[in-house]
Simulated assay, not measured.
Amino acid sequence: MGQRGGTEHLTVQREGATLVLTLNRPQAKNALSLPMLVGMYDGWLEADEDDAIRSIVLTGAGGGFCAGMDLKALAGKGMEGEQYRDRLKADPDLHWKAMLRHHRPRKPVIAAVEGYCVAGGTEILQGTDIRVAGESATFGLFEVRRGLFPIGGSTVRLQRQIPRTHALEMLLTGRPYSAAEAERIGLIGHVVPDGTALEAALAIAERINACGPLAVEAVKASVYESASLTETEGLAAELERGWPIFDTADAKEGARAFAEKREPVYRRA
């Protein structure tokens, strides 16, 4: 699986029970690189495997989020991080899992966006659960302007996350969207003053971290698994996910703490 703890283009930091992953290639507007993809994927795995982690925040360094694919590398100018090629050979889907196309962490993922979040950046965004952006952030799927296809999942997921007319306009025009417009069409949930997206995302993470972790993970799983079901199927699946939570020690602790007027102490049991 390789060493964890980040790479030269992806830093990993703990903020209490939150794992913060930072895309760290500011000289290239945090364009995707092999070291970045490997670091992201390892971060998702770390969060899945470590029960002490209750939430994840994904952000970018240098006042930007992610400008998408490295077009210079695509044009044949070489991609940094050749030492990670063995990871791709061992798992040819690693890059898609890193971009949250083929992988969904069981912990909530909060995006903290500043600056450019375009092309592959907007595709990664669609794999996150809660989204906060600075007021000067820019979004968009620019692929068609370069004769490319947004193959990170956007033609499938975007129309399920925002109204189809907005999804098609974003996909077919390749134009930029301001944070205010992205919020208006439902792509993001919060617009905050520039430079405070990470702070706002961490505040949301803290609220999540204070909740019962088994309940949080079950709720997230239920929302996604029921998305492709009929209402009747979804309600049946919800009961299967939800009823076992009531039998946990954490559920009993939540009720006890409420009665005793204190904060609950959850133990994932």
Rank of each mutant, 00 (worst) to 15 (best):
R4D: 02
R87C: 10
G43T: 09
S228L: 15
A119Q: 02
A182P: 02
S136K: 14
T7Q: 05
S136V: 06
P108L: 11
E82T: 14
A47S: 06
A203H: 12
V265G: 00
K252W: 09
A269M: 11
L45C: 12
G152Q: 02
E225A: 11
T232N: 07
S222Q: 05
P26Q: 07
Y177W: 12
V38K: 05
N24K: 12
A52T: 15
S154P: 01
C117K: 07
L202S: 06
D194G: 14
V118P: 02
R160Q: 15
R85T: 10
L100F: 08
A215V: 10
A119L: 07
P35V: 14
E199Q: 15
V191K: 06
G234F: 09
G174T: 10
A269C: 09
D51P: 09
E217F: 05
Q3A: 14
L148C: 01
A218W: 01
V57M: 09
G140W: 01
A90Q: 13
G76D: 01
E46R: 15
M99D: 00
T59V: 11
M36H: 03
T59M: 07
T128M: 12
V118K: 01
V20M: 04
F258L: 14
I188L: 08
M36F: 02
L168W: 11
A52C: 08
G68Y: 03
V118E: 02
H190N: 07
V12M: 09
A259T: 12
L94P: 04
F246A: 15
E231Q: 13
Q83M: 12
G78K: 04
G234N: 10
R262T: 05
A179S: 13
H102C: 11
E82M: 11
A215I: 08
P26F: 05
P105H: 08
